[in-house]
Nucleic acid binder design. Structure first.
Lengths: 335, 335
DNA sequence: ATGAAAGCGCTAACAG
DNA sequence: CTGTTAGCGCTTTCAT
C-alpha cells in the first residue's frame, strides 16, 4: 500500500537505516543522501508510520484526555487549551467522555493505557466513588488531574480558586447589604462544589452571619432543578435577599425564575454565579460571576503533564487565579 | 516494564501464539488454557499493547476529528456525538483544531495519516482556500466531511438544512409582516453560510420582495462585529424591520445592540438566528432560531465514516433535518 | 489444540 | 558516512 523506508532504500540502493537517519535529520549523513532521500520520499508519497515509531521507541507522542462531558462550556474550553499546548509540543490528544459514570471512566482509562498514551489528563466523573481504577494505572503512566481533582490520590492537580472565588463572591453579596443568602450547590462528592460551599460558609462566618442549613440546596449542577427549587422556597415563604449558585447555568436559571415571580434582581434578590459562561453576559441583568479560566486550566494542566512525561518531575498542585466579575445581577454599585 | 504476551507464555510454558489466541477468544484453544492465560494475565497486570496490534493488523481503531475550534457550541456538541458513537464501536478519537487556518489543517491531516487513523471526520476552516491537502490523502484514508462541507470534493458530507432552515426562517419573518430584512452573513467561502444566504434570498424572491444588496452584511460569524454593524445601519438611516443572522451569537448581539438603540424586539425589529445555542434561550426576548442538531450531525457523520471504513461504501450526502424554533424575538403570534 | 517462524515499519546499537 | 542486525509486541500462516 503506502511506501515505507524500505521502499525508499531499495529505490536508492541504500540501507533502510540510512533512510531513517536522513528522514530524521540524525547526524552523520551526507547532504547528498539527505536530499536524495527526501526527493524519493516525496516521489513515493512516503508517510512515516507513527505506530511503528511509537512501538519501537516506546513513546506515542499522544496524551489521553478524560472528561465527564465534552460539550459543556468548561470542558470544551479546557480541551481547547489542552489541544493547543499538546499540538505545539508535537503531541496528539485522544479524548474520551465518561458521562460522569465510573464504569465508563474505567473503560476509558483502560483503553488509553492500551493505546500507550504518554500521559493522561483526567477530570473524574461526579458519580465516581472509588479511585481504584486510577490507582491501578498511576504507576504505569503519568496522570494529571484537572478541575475535578481528588486530594487523597497523590497526583498533580490543577484547579481554580473555588474556595476563594466563592468566598469573595459571598463577601461581595454581604458587603452590598445582603444577609440571607441562598446557595445552590453542586453534587456533594464533587470536590470543587464542596470547596465553593466552604467559601460561602467561611464568608458568612467571617461576617458573623449564622449559617442556615435550609438556605443551601443541592441542585447537582443541574439547572433544570433550579426553577422548582425557587418555587419551593417562595411558596414556603423562605426569606432570602441573595442567591449564590455554584455555577452560571444554575444562576442564570435562578434569575429567570425569580423574575417570573416578580422579584427584582438585584434589588429584591441579588444573584451571583460561578464560571463566567457565555450566558452570563447575555442574561438580563448580566450575571456577576467568577471567571475560573477554563482554557488556562487546560493549558497549565497540559504543561504540568508534559513536564511529568519528560522528566518525572514531582507532584504539583496548581491553583489558577480566578477573578471576580461583577455585573448588574448583584448590587455592585453599593460595593 | 509492563508485561507482554511473551511473559505470560514463559510463565505458563506455552507459546506466545497460544496466549494471543486465548486472549482474543480465537477458536481452537482449550478452556483450560484460556482460563490459565487469563489468570496469569491478571496476575502480571497485562495490558494489550494496541500499538503493536495496530501495526500488525494495519488497523488502529482510531479515527481523527479535525475542526476549526473545539470550544464553540456547534463543534463541542458534534464532537460529543462523535465520541459517543466511536466509543461504542470500539474506536478512539484523536482531535485536532485548526483555528480556521489552512496550514494548521494541513499539519493536522498529515499527523493523523501518520498515526494511521482508520478514518477522518473533517470540518474545514473558513480561511481554507485550497483542497489539495485533502485530495492528497483521500485515497489513503476514508474522509467524511461534516458541517463545513466542500462540494467539489467527491467525499461524503453530512450537514444541516442550511438552505431550507434559512428559507423557512426568512419566510416566517415575511409572513409576520416584515419586508426589510437585514441579513448578517457568515464568511463567503464557508458553504453553509452561503447556503443560508441563498435560503434568505430565495424566500425573498418567492414572496416578491426585491433583494437589496446593502441589507446583507458579512459579519464573518464574528459577533463582535455586530454592534458596530448595527450602529452603522442606524446612523446611516438604513430602514429595516427585521434581522436574520447566520448564527445565534450574532443574532443575540443584534438583539442587545438594537435594545441599546431603543428599538423594540420584535415590534420594531424582529430578530432571528441560526443554531439554537444555549444563549438563544437566555436572551430577552428569547431568540427565534433554527435547531440544526449538531450532536446528531456528529453521530450520523461517524456512522457514515464507520461504514466507509468497514466496507468502502459509496459516497453519501446526508442532510440532517433542521427545525424552526419560534420564540419571542420574532412575531410568531402573527404567524 | 498448540508451536515455530515470519514480519508489520521503524530505530538503534555496533561495526566498519 | 553508511550498512548489518536485532527487536519493539503482536498476529498469523503453516506446521504438527
Amino acid at each position: 500500500m503506502s511506501a515505507t523506508i524500505k521502499d525508499i532504500a531499495k529505490r536508492l540502493r541504500i540501507s533502510p537505516s540510512t533512510v531513517s537517519r536522513a528522514l530524521n535529520n540524525k547526524p552523520g549523513i551526507s547532504k547528498k543522501t539527505i536530499s536524495a532521500v527526501n526527493i524519493m520520499a516525496n516521489k513515493l508519497n512516503y508517510k512515516r508510520n507513527s505506530l511503528a515509531v511509537s512501538l519501537r521507541q516506546d513513546k506515542s507522542f499522544c496524551i489521553g484526555v478524560v472528561v465527564p462531558w465534552i460539550s459543556n462550556y468548561f470542558f470544551a474550553e479546557a480541551i481547547s487549551g489542552i489541544e493547543h499546548v499538546a499540538f505545539c509540543a508535537g503531541y496528539q490528544i485522544i479524548i474520551a467522555q465518561t458521562n460522569d459514570d465510573e464504569e465508563e471512566e474505567k473503560r476509558a482509562l483502560q483503553a488509553l493505557t492500551s493505546s500507550r498514551v504518554d500521559g493522561i489528563l483526567l477530570s473524574t466523573g461526579s458519580k465516581v466513588k472509588g479511585v481504584s481504577h486510577i490507582r491501578a494505572i498511576q504507576k504505569e503512566v503519568p496522570i494529571v488531574l484537572f478541575d475535578r481533582t481528588i486530594k487523597r490520590l497523590k497526583l498533580s492537580g490543577i484547579g481554580a480558586e473555588d474556595y476563594r472565588g466563592a468566598y469573595e463572591m459571598t463577601k461581595h453579596l454581604i458587603k452590598s447589604g445582603k444577609r440571607k443568602i441562598v446557595h445552590l450547590s453542586g453534587p456533594k462528592n464533587v470536590e470543587i462544589a464542596m470547596n465553593r460551599l466552604s467559601g460561602y460558609k467561611s464568608a458568612l462566618s467571617k461576617h458573623k452571619i449564622p449559617f442556615k442549613r435550609h438556605l443551601v440546596i443541592d441542585c447537582d449542577f443541574n439547572e433544570s432543578l433550579v426553577h422548582p427549587t425557587i418555587t419551593k422556597l417562595i411558596s414556603e415563604g423562605v426569606e432570602f435577599d441573595a442567591l449564590f449558585a455554584s455555577n452560571d447555568d444554575m444562576a442564570v436559571q435562578a434569575i429567570i425564575s425569580l423574575k417570573k415571580y416578580g422579584k427584582k434582581v438585584p434589588e429584591d434578590i441579588a444573584v451571583a454565579g460561578f464560571g463566567n459562561y457565555p450566558v452570563s453576559k447575555i442574561v438580563n441583568p448580566q450575571l456577576s460571576t467568577v471567571n475560573h479560566q477554563p482554557k488556562e486550566i487546560g493549558i497549565q494542566a497540559t504543561k504540568v503533564l508534559l513536564n511529568q512525561i519528560d522528566q518525572l518531575t514531582p507532584v504539583v498542585n496548581l491553583i489558577i487565579k480566578s477573578e471576580l466579575i461583577l455585573r448588574d445581577s448583584s448590587c455592585n454599585s453599593v460595593d
